[in-house]
Lab assay of single mutants.
Amino acid sequence: NNDALSPAIRRLLAEWNLDASAIKGTGVGGRLTREDVEKHLAKA
């Protein structure tokens, strides 16, 4: 759900053309954090 994404995370996902549903969020309530996105990018 994009409503739970911060503007910074939305921008990062758009910049790298990533799908938020493909990344497991570790923040409060399962929210994506910058670290989650960076770890996903490191694996790719």
Results as ranks from 00 to 15, higher is better:
1 N>Y: 06
1 N>A: 14
1 N>G: 13
2 N>F: 08
2 N>T: 13
2 N>V: 13
2 N>Q: 12
3 D>I: 11
3 D>A: 11
3 D>G: 11
3 D>L: 11
3 D>T: 10
4 A>P: 12
4 A>T: 12
4 A>D: 14
4 A>R: 13
4 A>V: 13
5 L>P: 04
5 L>A: 05
5 L>V: 10
5 L>R: 04
6 S>P: 11
6 S>A: 08
6 S>Q: 05
6 S>D: 15
6 S>Y: 04
6 S>F: 05
7 P>V: 11
7 P>W: 07
7 P>F: 07
7 P>N: 11
7 P>Y: 06
7 P>A: 14
8 A>R: 07
8 A>Q: 10
8 A>Y: 13
9 I>P: 00
9 I>H: 01
9 I>N: 00
9 I>T: 03
9 I>E: 01
9 I>R: 01
10 R>Q: 11
10 R>E: 08
10 R>F: 06
11 R>T: 08
11 R>K: 14
11 R>N: 10
11 R>M: 09
11 R>P: 01
11 R>S: 08
12 L>A: 03
12 L>M: 09
12 L>I: 06
12 L>Q: 03
13 L>M: 05
13 L>K: 00
13 L>E: 00
13 L>G: 00
13 L>A: 01
13 L>I: 06
14 A>Y: 11
14 A>P: 01
14 A>D: 14
15 E>K: 15
15 E>H: 15
15 E>T: 09
15 E>F: 15
15 E>W: 15
15 E>I: 15
17 N>G: 15
17 N>S: 08
17 N>D: 11
17 N>H: 10
17 N>I: 03
17 N>A: 07
17 N>E: 09
17 N>M: 06
18 L>N: 02
18 L>Y: 03
18 L>H: 04
18 L>D: 02
18 L>S: 02
18 L>R: 01
19 D>K: 07
19 D>R: 05
19 D>A: 07
19 D>G: 04
19 D>Y: 06
19 D>F: 05
20 A>F: 06
20 A>E: 09
20 A>Q: 06
20 A>Y: 06
21 S>E: 10
21 S>I: 06
22 A>T: 11
22 A>H: 11
22 A>S: 13
22 A>V: 11
22 A>E: 15
22 A>Q: 14
23 I>R: 01
23 I>H: 00
24 K>D: 07
25 G>P: 08
26 T>F: 03
26 T>V: 03
26 T>A: 02
26 T>L: 05
26 T>H: 03
26 T>E: 02
26 T>N: 04
26 T>P: 01
26 T>K: 02
26 T>W: 04
27 G>D: 03
27 G>R: 01
27 G>L: 03
27 G>E: 01
27 G>S: 03
28 V>S: 08
28 V>A: 12
28 V>E: 14
28 V>K: 11
29 G>V: 03
29 G>R: 07
29 G>Q: 07
29 G>Y: 05
30 G>V: 02
30 G>I: 03
30 G>L: 02
30 G>Y: 01
30 G>H: 04
30 G>E: 04
31 R>G: 06
31 R>D: 05
31 R>S: 13
31 R>M: 14
32 L>Y: 03
32 L>G: 00
32 L>H: 00
32 L>V: 09
32 L>P: 03
33 T>H: 00
33 T>R: 07
33 T>F: 02
33 T>I: 05
33 T>G: 01
33 T>P: 00
34 R>N: 07
34 R>C: 09
34 R>Q: 12
34 R>L: 15
34 R>G: 04
35 E>C: 12
35 E>S: 09
36 D>F: 02
36 D>C: 02
36 D>W: 03
36 D>E: 01
36 D>M: 02
37 V>N: 00
37 V>M: 03
37 V>T: 00
37 V>A: 02
38 E>Q: 09
38 E>L: 15
38 E>W: 15
38 E>T: 08
39 K>A: 14
39 K>S: 09
39 K>G: 08
39 K>H: 11
39 K>P: 02
40 H>T: 05
40 H>L: 11
40 H>G: 02
40 H>Q: 05
40 H>I: 10
40 H>V: 10
41 L>W: 08
41 L>S: 02
41 L>I: 15
41 L>G: 03
41 L>K: 04
41 L>E: 02
42 A>K: 12
42 A>D: 07
42 A>Y: 12
43 K>I: 13
43 K>Y: 12
43 K>D: 11
43 K>C: 13
44 A>G: 09
44 A>S: 12
44 A>D: 07
44 A>M: 15
